[in-house]
Amino acid sequence: MTLSCIAVDDEPLALGLVCAFIEKTPFLNLVGRYSSAVEALQGLMTTPVDVIFLDIQMPDLTGLELARVLERSNRGAHTTRIIFTTAFDQFALDGFRVDALDYLLKPFNYEEFLRAASKARHYFELIQRPDPTPVAVQAPAP
């Protein structure tokens, strides 16, 4: 399965790095890159995505604020999950309060990135099978 995703970061180099990591990952499909949360929000109106790699501290609109906006408009419709990317570990708690899928502390390497991305894939695989088929245990014939 392939997950559509966008990356949001106000710092060009940081944004470039996340995008490079996304492009390197076969099951992730980068559909947009934004240098502000406001632009990302506009993009999301037209094309909803599965995963957002979202920086927290950004001018104008922070990642946490964007996450709260999405949480409100998310209900019932397409589920978008968020992976925060930030240098601020004290925001971890806030991150989990807005039900973030994972939390990447800058600077992070590809292995850490991949672990978070795999978590997202696992999550979407689970919700695609609402009633997982029970594993049939075959009793050995007497």
Partner: peptide, 17 residues
């Protein structure tokens, strides 16, 4: 400290390009 971490992250990205 965030200045250091953010800067280090940018340098990390720079090393690739």
């Amino acid at each position: 400290p965030h200045f250091f971490f953010n800067t280090l992250n940018n340098i990390y990205a720079l090393t690739l390009i």
